[in-house]
């Protein structure tokens, strides 16, 4: 089936089998390999992307279901020279070690900060319960999200923050 998915602001049209999961479409058809696969039971959150601004597990959406929709992946969040506050937060606070869960963590956290500009530790932990990290014990991930919230509050990177 032909699908057109707007990924990070750019439309991509591809012929896919209906069974193609969105994560495989991103990784294998578009070579956007920043979105990872960590499980096959829809639990680990490594594949988290945004559809229409909402965080979803791209392993549990068919590519054909994303036809015509806006998808944002980690590659669309910021570049090394122009980081999203969450990317800065994870970097500054050592919120990652192996980096494998990190794109999913950042995408899930972005949705939290959209609804809650100043989340408490408890709110962050609650919101990230669907994202496994095996390296950090989550301590620095909590700090990373808090740091990002501070940056966004200070409006230092308001331009980037606003469009997410």
């Amino acid at each position: 089936m032909n699908v057109t998915v707007n990924v990070n602001g750019k439309p991509y049209t591809r012929d896919v089998e209906p069974r193609t999961l969105l994560v495989h479409f991103l990784r294998e058809d578009l070579l956007l390999t920043g979105t990872h696969v960590g499980c096959d039971t829809s639990q680990c959150g490594a594949c988290t992307v945004h559809i229409g601004g909402e965080a979803v597990k791209s392993c549990t959406v068919l590519a054909v279901q994303a036809d015509g929709l806006d998808v944002k992946t980690i590659e669309g969040m910021g570049t090394p020279g122009d980081l999203h506050p969450l990317q800065t937060g994870f970097w500054e606070k050592h919120g990652l070690q192996c980096g494998y869960c990190t794109p999913g963590m950042i995408m899930a956290s972005a949705e939290l900060l959209k609804h809650n500009a100043n989340p408490s530790e408890e709110e962050i932990r609650y919101h990230l319960e669907g994202n496994y990290c095996r390296c950090t014990g989550y301590h620095n991930i909590v700090k990373a999200v808090q740091h990002a919230a501070e940056i966004m509050a200070q409006g230092e990177q308001a331009g980037q923050a606003a469009d997410d």
Binding site: G34, E75, M77, G99
Partner: peptide, 11 residues
Amino acid sequence: DPRFITGAGNY
């Protein structure tokens, strides 16, 4: 970290 936080890791 810049490569990991921007999705540019190479696994």
